[in-house]
Amino acid sequence: MLSLLLNFATIGQASPTEAQLIKNVAPKELSWETFETVKKHASLTTDDLRFQSLDWKTTVFEGLKYGQELDKPVILWLYFGDPRGAC
């Protein structure tokens, strides 16, 4: 369960690399010649990392406590399972 102090700085940005990611074609085989191409496709883009540039706390408790300290509202992201994968 993630929580975050309310911050508007990075919300609403379109991903400029999305079109490129969709165009990428997988190499036929994995070799040292294709290693970097495959790695690049499976690497975090600038847009992917923008989400993580926010000061996320990984528990609701930490978020509420921090919000109290700073007198700021808190974004609670509640979910079943894990935010990094499927439910």
Binding site: V60, L64, K72, P73, V74, L76, L78, Y79
Partner: peptide, 26 residues
């Protein structure tokens, strides 16, 4: 911790449930 979260959803028939919410530290 539980009571605070339960309070956030006190008027919600689904109780504590998933989603993205903005709440006060209280």
């Amino acid at each position: 911790e539980f009571q605070l979260l339960a309070n956030v959803f006190r008027n919600d028939p689904n109780g504590i449930h998933q989603g993205i919410f903005v709440v006060t530290p209280s």
